[in-house]
Amino acid sequence: MLIGKLINSVIIIVLSYVLLKLIQYLLNKLFELTKFDERYENTLCSVLSSISYYIIFVVSLILVLREFNIVDATKFSTLVTGASIVGLIAGVAAQSILKDIFNGFFILFERQIQVGDFVVINEDFKGTIEEIGLRSTSLRDWDLKRITISNGTITSIRNYSKNKMRVVVHVRVSYEEDPMKVLDSLEEVCSVMNENYKDYFIKDSRGEITSKFKVYGVTDIEKNPIGAQYTMTGVVESCKYFSALRDTKLQILIIFKKNNVRIAYPTHINVVHYNEDRN
C-alpha cells in the first residue's frame, strides 16, 4: 500500500513538472505571435510562468497529501488536519510572503522594471533583469552572476532602460589651463560626438536629433583644489547610454591630448624617510 502511494506521488510530481514545462512552452509560442514590446512580452511570460509554478505546486502538494490521507475533502477530520498543517506553515511565512507578493504586484502594475532592463536595486545590486516573479526578482550582473532579490526587500530602483537618458560627463582640468581653451576643446568633443555617433541620439518623427551633446560649462571651482570641473551633457537612447558615456570619455582624452590640455591630478607627494640602524 505504501509503495503504491509513493509511486502515485512520484507520478503526480513528474506530471506536474511536465505540465509546467508545457505551459512555459505554450507561453513562449503565444508571445511569438503577439506584437507587444519585446521587454513587455518577456516580463509577462516571466510573471505568468511564476504564477503557473505556484498554482501547480499547491495543487500537486494537495494531491500528494491526499494520497497519504492527510488531506481529503470528503472527510472532515483529515481536512482539518491538512488545514492545520497548511495554517501552521502559512502562519510562519505569511508575513514575508505577502510582503513579497504585494510589493511584486505593485512593481509589475506600475511597470517599474521589465525583463531586459538594466537596473540598480537598493543602490547595491546592479545588472540586467532576467526574471520577475510574484515573490522575487532575478538579475544578471556584469560578472554573469545571477542575483535573486525578494520583492519585499526592494526599496529603490534606478532604471537605465526608460527610453532616454542624459549623459553627464565631468572632467577636472588644472587651474593653470586657459578656460577658453578648455571650453573650445570640449566643444570639439561635442562636435565629434554629434557627427560620428548619431545612432546614439533620440530622434523626432522627421529623423532629426532632438538633443545633441553640448558644453554645460564650469560647474565647480571650490570643492577640489587640484582643478576646475567642466561638464558636458547629451541625451541618448537608454540602450546606448553606457556606450555613449564610454565614447565621450575616450574622445575627451583624445582631443585634450591633441590640444595639450592637461587633466588635473594630485601633485602633492609625501616622502617618508626610514632610518635603519646598522651595526
Rank of each mutant, 00 (worst) to 15 (best):
E67S: 10
I70V: 15
M180C: 01
Y200G: 00
I226M: 10
L65D: 03
G152N: 11
L186R: 03
S16E: 00
E123R: 12
M232Y: 13
L26K: 13
M165H: 03
I121D: 05
F57R: 03
E176H: 08
T74N: 15
I226H: 07
Y241E: 05
E32Q: 13
G133D: 06
D117G: 07
T267W: 01
L44N: 13
N279K: 13
I85L: 12
V86A: 15
K212Y: 08
A93Q: 13
R262N: 12
H170Y: 12
G87C: 10
I89Q: 05
F105E: 05
Y160C: 08
I11S: 04
C45I: 15
M180S: 12
E222S: 14
S96C: 03
A83T: 12
F213P: 04
I269S: 04
S156L: 06
R111E: 14
A73Y: 13
G207W: 04
S52Y: 07
L108A: 11
D72H: 04
I62C: 06
V115R: 02
Q251N: 11
L20G: 02
I107D: 07
T148N: 07
E38F: 06
W142G: 04
I56N: 02
G227I: 05
T155V: 11
T81K: 07
K203S: 02
S77R: 10
E222F: 14
F125R: 07
L108C: 08
V192I: 14
D141S: 03
T231D: 05
L30M: 11
K145S: 15
D220I: 07
D204F: 01
I56E: 05
Q114F: 11
D100W: 09
D178E: 12
R111P: 00
T219H: 06
Q114V: 07
V64A: 02
V168G: 02
G127V: 04
N163C: 01
I129H: 06
I107E: 08
I97Q: 11
Y160F: 15
G227A: 08
S60I: 01
T137I: 09
R39V: 01
I97N: 10
G207S: 08
V271E: 09
E177C: 03
N194G: 04
L22V: 12
V189L: 05
E195R: 13
L65I: 00
K212C: 00
S49V: 03
D277L: 14
R206Q: 14
R246C: 06
F31M: 09
G133V: 08
